[in-house]
Amino acid sequence: MTIGYATFGEAIRRRILVIFLLFAIVSIVGSQIFKAFSPGEEEKFVVDLGLNSIKWFSILIAILLGAVMIPQEIERKTLHTVLAKPVGRGQFILGKFVGTCLAVLFNASLMAIAFFVVYAIQQKGGFDVSLLYQFALTCMELILFISIVVFLSTFSSTVFVLVVSFCVVVLGSTATFWKNIPAENEISGLLFLGVSALAPNFEIFDLSRPILTGAAIAPDMITYPLVYGFMYTSIMLLLSFVIFNERQF
């Protein structure tokens, strides 16, 4: 946890993170002004913009933090002094992962508080519990995503991590499309199958449709993504340990 706290302390002092946080909060609060553009669907507009702001700004923060955390330690050789102490390489990776998660979730929580306040004002004191479910799933989605970024950064440079992370976000957010796309030949069929099998499916963390339509949220819509996220994160961390353990600095 010592490495985790240090990572968190370093992360929350980054200026870019504060800028994204401010953008997100301005966007959430601004939804009260822009809802006028969707007459009759003001509530949907506020919820949609609020939830998406939390998710996408948090993902941006996760990419920017995750991409630099480990490569920077290697480049600046801070890693040498840490690994010279009785610290395992796995512990180091876990510390970096936990610290990044804490920083990203801390920011997501601030955004969520801003959103819940705006929503409560919109509803004149009312509150929808399903928004909390959505926030919990967004947190799991962010944790999963951070584990992928950490995995990538155990063997590559910051620029590579940034590029591939964006690709992962795009692939993960369009998982159904890749699964259902008709293949013109065997090779493209295998490619689409591989992409849909390996890339994380971020769509399962999205409850916005039932929330916006007022439909009931079945328990498995919560438990399945949580289990999926936990498993995927565990595999990513395990692979990170294996790769990092063999790296030379």
Partner: peptide, 18 residues
């Protein structure tokens, strides 16, 4: 062994916020 080792690197770099 590392519990009993100290290492002073050349031009060390530490967390800048500390």
């Amino acid at each position: 062994a590392k519990r009993r080792i100290g290492f002073v690197p050349e031009g060390p770099f530490f967390y800048q916020h500390m």
